[in-house]
């Protein structure tokens, strides 16, 4: 039984901080939880922080893109932050360029990006 990844709320933004390497099941759980929370809170933005993520496979890579697509349909802009160089290289080698996903170097910049985009009160809620 894998642990569930917490979805935290900061104002209008939901923060998902992934602290462990992902298993297939936990990614699927996360997708479900996140979709529910977006509807529940009416969040305008989602920040997925993968600073601690060291290993990705094609499944996790694809799921990140799908999660972003789901959030967008629910009217929440998604920003993927803190990707490590090794992870980026792996995703590129796997042929996953995560087309529609916005990215930022750090959590701070990700939040700022959301703030600029839709007037979301990030960080000051």
């Amino acid at each position: 039984m894998s642990e569930r990844i917490p979805v935290l709320r900061i104002g209008d933004v939901l923060l998902v901080s992934i602290q462990t390497d992902l298993e297939d099941q936990s990614v699927l759980d996360l997708q479900e939880d996140l979709a529910e929370r977006i509807v529940e809170t009416g969040a305008q933005g989602v920040v997925i922080d993968i600073t601690a993520l060291e290993i990705v496979d094609s499944f996790v890579g694809r799921m990140l893109a799908t999660t972003a697509a789901i959030s967008r349909i629910l009217d929440a802009e998604t920003v993927l932050v803190g990707m490590r160089p090794a992870v980026a290289i792996t995703l590129v080698e796997l042929g996953l360029s995560l087309g529609g996903v916005r990215t930022a170097l750090s959590l701070e910049r990700g939040l700022a990006m959301l703030g600029r985009a839709g007037g979301v009160g990030a960080g000051r809620a």
Binding site: L80, V81, M83, V87, A88, L91, V92, S97
Partner: peptide, 12 residues
């Protein structure tokens, strides 16, 4: 191209 895409993935 790969390098550019990788940089983009990281938010640069």
């Amino acid at each position: 191209l790969k390098t550019v895409v990788a940089a983009r993935l990281m938010g640069a």
